[in-house]
């Protein structure tokens, strides 16, 4: 299907779309469109966050929505991350569907009490009498000196918690469909977006649709090794797969799209075929999504691996600010290529 395809940039998309009538929009436009449609259709949806009515509109994802829907429904909030999370929870348990937006994932640690001790627990503690249809969007920064406190990828803070869902869409199609799915899921959902995805383009239908939560997707088929690429790393994995293909190595690329719940069935099926697994993640290694994937393979299908798993993660240190250090810090296509070769040599 055209919308299962993944394009690294506008040029790539336009080349592929030449002569077709399918519409292409960017990742940020996809989020904006999904949000705008829901605000239009459903009075219970509202957007809240620091700077959501700013001229830039949180990197374009909420741009000008306040002009269309008013400042009561697209509300700039005081600087109080934990407080506004609590306020959004209060509104959610009172029948609203708030979309709470943080410009950086790094602000989420301030909200952990409300998310972990309250949003994740209300439905359980009170026997399903209350649900918390809260969506929290947060963005991973990278580059421009984002550095240690404005660039973290922290899904594992939430994947450990029963009651939460964690989504990491990589394409414009999934960004739109998963945001809608999250708003109507009924459970509290954390969506972690990557800043570098915002200008990526892809086919996105104009109509409303949802992408099922908990279903991953095969971005590229291959028989020699499986690479699970999470969020932005799905693109790096695709580049690696193309380069490897030129050397005669066919890599299967899987984009899990949602990391809690994880589509382990899809990953295990692929590894059964290839026997080799590389996991490329946007964050650190210990107790990461990759660690969970490996543990689940050990628990459920320990005999399917022909070689040890190789994980491509950030080095065990905070993000440096200097462009020179930053360049050395982030793993990318070359690391994935080496990782795949390592699994094949074994």
């Amino acid at each position: 299907m055209p919308w299962t395809k993944i394009y690294s940039n506008k040029e790539e998309f336009e080349k592929a779309a030449a002569g077709s009538t399918l519409r292409g929009i960017t990742y940020k436009e996809a989020i904006l469109e999904a949000t705008s449609r829901m605000l239009e259709q459903d009075k219970s949806v509202f957007v809240i966050g620091e700077g959501v009515d700013d001229a830039g509109g949180v990197f374009g994802t909420t741009k000008n929505l306040h002009l269309k829907f008013g400042k009561d429904r697209v509300m700039d909030s005081p600087l109080a991350e934990n407080g506004i999370t609590g306020i959004a929870i209060g509104a959610a348990i009172s029948g609203m569907r708030p979309i709470l937006v943080h410009m950086r994932v790094d602000f989420l640690p301030l909200t952990l009490d409300q998310i972990i001790n309250h949003a994740a627990k209300w439905h359980y503690m009170f026997g399903g009498k209350l649900s918390v249809p809260l969506v929290v969007r947060a963005i991973i920064g990278r580059g421009w000196g984002s550095a240690a406190q404005h660039s973290q990828s922290l899904p594992s803070l939430f994947t450990n918690i029963p009651g939460l869902r964690v989504l990491m869409p990589a394409t414009p199609y999934d960004a739109k469909g998963l945001l809608r799915a999250a708003v109507y899921d009924g459970n509290p959902v954390i969506i972690i977006e990557h800043r570098w995805l915002y200008d990526h383009m892809g086919h996105v239908p104009e109509d409303d649709y949802t992408v099922p939560i908990g279903k991953g997707i095969v971005r590229r088929e291959g028989k020699d090794a499986t690479v699970v690429g999470i969020s932005y790393m799905a693109y790096e994995a695709m580049r690696a797969a193309e380069a490897l293909s030129k050397e005669g190595i066919e890599t299967e690329v899987i984009d899990p799209r949602t990391v809690k719940p994880l589509d382990m069935g899809l990953i295990i099926e692929s590894v059964k075929k290839t026997g080799r697994l590389v996991i490329a993640d946007t964050g650190w290694k210990e107790c990461s999504v990759g660690a969970e994937i490996v543990a689940r393979i050990m628990e459920e299908s320990c005999g399917i691996l022909k070689a040890p798993v190789v994980r491509v993660n950030l080095p065990e240190t905070p993000t440096p600010a200097s462009p020179a250090l930053e360049k050395a810090y982030y793993p990318g296509v070359d690391h994935i290529i080496s990782a795949v070769k390592k699994t094949i040599q074994k």
């Binding site: 009561d72 209060g90 348990i93 609203m96």
Partner: peptide
């Protein structure tokens, strides 16, 4: 804050 959020929901 939950009470404030509920109050805000009532307003909306």
């Amino acid at each position: 804050p939950h009470a404030t959020g509920a109050a805000w929901a009532m307003r909306l």
